[in-house]
Write a protein that binds this DNA or RNA. Structure first.
Lengths: 216, 216
DNA sequence: ACGCAATACTTTTGATCAAATTGCCCGTGA
DNA sequence: TCACGGGCAATTTGATCAAAAGTATTGCGT
């Protein structure tokens, strides 16, 4: 019999929790992070918290300001440009590759996730929007079976998460537009090139939206 | 009085040491890594070793096979292709940006490093070649002042380091060709576009060289 | 000799504690 | 009021230990 509960280590739990907090806008740029703070968050010792912090800083989700100040990084126009360059390379590629491996029930799942996105936008649920949008994209990217590219995409999402939250909070969810419908339509048609283009458009528009905000 | 020696933490020391081992071909794909092994390597406790491992796995330099087996990842044709895609996006961009910030003594330094590369190739010093080649590229990339792109480039180099070592060991250094001279010439001419192209060629050729080897 | 099971050993994992480092606050003096 | 310095407090850092988990090995029975 297979394991019912996969007991994951504490440091993994902390890592995943903080990752969610960053991706889904529960933290703010500039917010300090301490080892004890994370340990208390989960209710564990400091050792696993340290490992989670090392992992997150290695991924660029946190930055070490001084020896004893770690915080979630602030966005700048320059950093945004670097992120966009790599996103525009990696994510359309993932989308195109995903189109080849995509089965009908995968498309159904993507359409379900897109409905969650629309619903969150309608009711102005920022956290819900960020989470559903993330799940849509990475369910798609997971189909590509390109572990390295997918990992890079995740680090980039970790970097823009806090800023997305700030921008959404300022302008609301009403102005949010996405190209998910075009994506699922292309997938149903088995059109990989159009899938790639739809995701490319989605990213471009999303990054433009973030760029609206003045940084620093 | 300012501090003369900046005492860096043990986990940083271990991290840098293992990073060098991977980049400069001191480890072999498939080689297992244990917490105690790293701790003994530096002569320290296991706590800092754990943090170093978390960081390295987050960067893709190590992979977690099972719960208690961590090793240097093996290369596959598929992984190589993913790496090349991102390298060809990031590194030429870094090179072009570097050209704008490049001062004369920077070029001199790059030429000095290139001489070390040539010398290592001539005497067949694989480790020396890998190190000098790395220093040439990342001295250049450092000039670009694009922290995120540079970080991504480093993770990609960490991923191909062990394989480069294997390929060089098999075919020797005699067949190695690079485009460093074209790079420094373009830099002296202040020609950013040609600098970008030289580095792009350098990467393409290097990746082709690795691709020669059949991965099972 | 082979398969199966139990045991022993290696390794990770997480808590705790002492020491070191650094930021911070407050008081003193000009 | 402000600059400077000392001391306090919070935090990181690294070692150590106990417990858990998995792997390899040994031994037993057929």
């Amino acid at each position: 019999m297979h394991k019912l509960v996969s007991k994951k280590p504490e440091h993994e739990t902390i890592y995943l929790r903080v990752k969610e907090m960053i991706l889904f806008g529960e933290v703010i740029p500039g917010q300090p992070v301490t080892i004890h703070g994370l340990a208390d968050l989960i209710g564990t010792g400091v050792t696993p918290a340290r490992e989670a912090i090392r992992r997150l800083t290695a991924e660029g989700a946190l930055v070490i300001q001084t020896n004893r100040r770690i915080e979630v990084p602030a966005m700048t126009a320059d950093r945004l440009q670097q992120i966009e360059l790599v996103r525009m390379t990696v994510e359309p590629e993932l989308a195109e590759a995903a189109a080849s491996n995509c089965k009908p029930n995968d498309i159904s799942e993507l359409e379900r996730l897109d409905l969650l996105v629309d619903e969150a936008i309608k009711v102005g649920d920022i956290r819900g929007y960020l989470e559903a949008n993330y799940r849509f994209h990475f369910y798609l990217y997971g189909l590509a079976e390109a572990q390295i590219l997918r990992g890079i995409a995740e680090t980039l999402w970790l970097r823009i998460g806090p800023s997305l939250r700030v921008v959404c909070g300022r302008y609301g969810t009403a102005n949010l537009v996405d190209h998910h419908r075009a994506t699922t339509r292309a997938l149903r048609a088995g059109d990989a090139a159009t899938t790639r283009e739809a995701i490319a458009q989605d990213i471009r528009q999303g990054m433009d939206f973030v760029r609206q905000t003045a940084f620093e």
